[in-house]
Design a protein around this nucleic acid. Structure first.
Lengths: 352, 352
DNA sequence: CTGAAAGCGCTTACAG
DNA sequence: CTGAAAGCGCTTACAG
């Protein structure tokens, strides 16, 4: 409205013939200021359109941001499309809100456009949560270089000098493998989201495995294998995206390529729900014609009767927040394993 | 590791006998610096554990934050529990990411603890998105006072001098009312999330309506009423939370209180999915015994065959971002209505 | 209760 | 290609 330059604490002080310290006190320590002065200041501020001390300047002066950066692998809209990551976020937000910290969402973005600059370097935060980024992620490296408290969720687990929370994916997958072996399955399909950095959809051959940078998937495959009887065989179908559509598509491809498959493990409930849809559309009965299992146990899993590996999603977020808040500089990295459990429901059964 | 004070641009400059301008240039305009100097600086920085110019100071100096604050009604974990708001967030993030802006999540939080301070006042942002906050929300008022570009999504629509994007809720609900009237329904139950600020679960009586501060719900009720034949009657059940559990619970209560009800409109798919569950558990067939409809059209709605009002959720987020980015100071507030459509699926039919 | 002054860490014209 | 210097808007001891 006014065309005069934006009002500042200094300009208010000058216009009133007061010191900046007094104006500052009106906003930060009102009890140190006399009522008369306070009212005059507030009134003048109102008139000048001054909404209080500038947020950036105050943060700068204070040296703290009361904000935590949350970094996802690539586009945020992908992360938000999976109820599993959203549940994690919800748990994290609960813990951070208790500490009156805000969450800054930082998409790690596609590679790095200009070689050196990451969002992460310029983010105004007091710490970072990294959610499931690949090994050797440059954003994570950048965060670590800033020497801000940093917690990694899920992956990478071992290759990084930071606190970590996640699952024993190998053991969880082994349980699942045993369940399937007991039911009598020998030829098992696997639907996994991306193993490597490059966009690829198709069967995961040795080359894909050799460039795999997502350790969670690697550990699950190894676990499955170990949980199956010795004669169990795994046929892995990879999709770049973790979506219902990708799951549906992958199931089709898998059954065409490997008709001998009697059970399909999806490394995420969202993929499994897609697989279930595809099976239904193809007229296949589940688990009669094919057993389908998931991972995560999102709310919809129970509603559709999906057999899945339950993991405490919100709790994982809460623990991530806790690790961040209790971070001690220079301490050895802490690794927190959360329990999983196999939820056997209606989509798994013996092969025909 | 080092116990020396945290390195700064100035300390690096001094240790190298260079000016701060040169160090700054190494990070911000590397092409202006000779290779030799750049290498020396980078090496010294590495050795000193200097990760580049301090984010807060740089933001302060630049006067911009490259960040947008997103404000929800109360706890963030509630917002994240509804796929509808998550889809909105995803759409918003898409648009903001294009503009290389980050998202800061700001829970509006329970009332205000200390009377004057809102998260919103101290948030380091260049603008705000408010998502579905009640009329007279103090956080929204605080944001407006900061004179930062602000966009309101859904509500409040009219009482606020800010850009807005949302639906014609009245018209959408009227369509739904007509659909139900055509099918032959006369006694319609409604399940709505909170109407007022106070925590209340039960039938929405006149007192509740008189203190209603969420205009979306008011408009939907009015629309439903107008879409129904003159002899149509509405029985409204209110729940404070917008969750599957609340929907299930509300359906039970509604059918006990009003056995004459043959159709139930839920003002959110999440509530509807809960209602569907409750109906199934009670052995009621849908739509044979009771018609159930939703609102939003989240992905799960199609999968369970829910008749619902479709709204373009991600698009709404994208438009919100667009309005924010194209905000012109002092311009008249813009109001963008997005189209809705009635998706008639399997959960609605004629009463028996 | 109020004020004078330093300084948080940086970037940006500008001069050389 | 490099440097000297101003200044972004604020808060905090400290003195009075």
């Amino acid at each position: 409205m006014t065309t005069s330059p934006r009002p500042t604490l200094t300009s208010i002080a000058r216009s009133l013939g007061l010191s900046t310290a007094t104006i500052s006190n009106v906003y930060n320590h009102p009890e140190r200021v006399s009522d008369g002065v306070r009212d005059r200041v507030l009134q003048a501020a109102e008139a000048a359109g001054y909404a209080g001390p500038d947020a950036v300047a105050r943060r700068f002066r204070r040296g703290t941001s009361d904000t935590v950066g949350v970094v996802f692998t690539d586009e945020m809209s992908f992360a938000l499309a999976d109820p599993a990551s959203v549940a994690l976020l919800a748990g994290l937000s609960t813990r951070l809100q208790e500490a009156r910290l805000n969450m800054l969402l930082l998409p790690a973005g596609p590679p790095l456009d200009d070689s050196r600059v990451s969002n992460v370097m310029s983010a105004v935060v007091d710490g970072f949560i990294f959610y499931s980024v690949p090994e050797g992620d440059p954003h994570l490296a950048a965060a670590l270089r800033r020497r801000l408290p940093t917690v990694v969720v899920d992956e990478p687990r071992d290759s990084v000098d930071a606190d970590w929370v996640g699952l024993d994916d190998g053991a969880a997958a082994a349980d699942l493998g045993e369940h399937l072996a007991h039911l009598g399955h020998r030829n098992i399909g696997v639907i996994t989201s991306r193993l490597g950095r490059s966009r690829y959809n198709g069967p995961a051959d040795d080359r894909r495995w050799s460039e795999a940078v997502y350790s969670v998937q690697r550990n699950r495959i190894a676990g499955l294998q170990s949980g199956l009887a010795d004669d169990g065989a795994l046929f892995v179908e990879e999709r770049f995206e973790n979506s219902v559509e990708a799951g549906a598509d992958a199931l089709q491809a898998l059954l065409v390529r490997h008709p001998e498959v009697t059970a399909v493990c999806c490394f995420g409930d969202v993929l499994a729900i897609g697989a279930l849809e595809a099976a239904r559309r193809s007229g296949l009965s589940v688990p009669g014609d094919v057993t389908i299992t998931g991972f995560d146990d999102i709310p919809e899993a129970a509603r559709v009767g999906l057999t899945t590996v339950q993991q405490p999603l919100a709790e994982k977020g809460r623990v991530a927040g806790e690790l961040l808040l209790s971070h001690a500089h220079g301490a050895a990295p802490r690794k927190r394993f959360l329990p999983t459990s196999l939820e056997v429901r209606a989509t798994s059964g013996p092969p025909r």
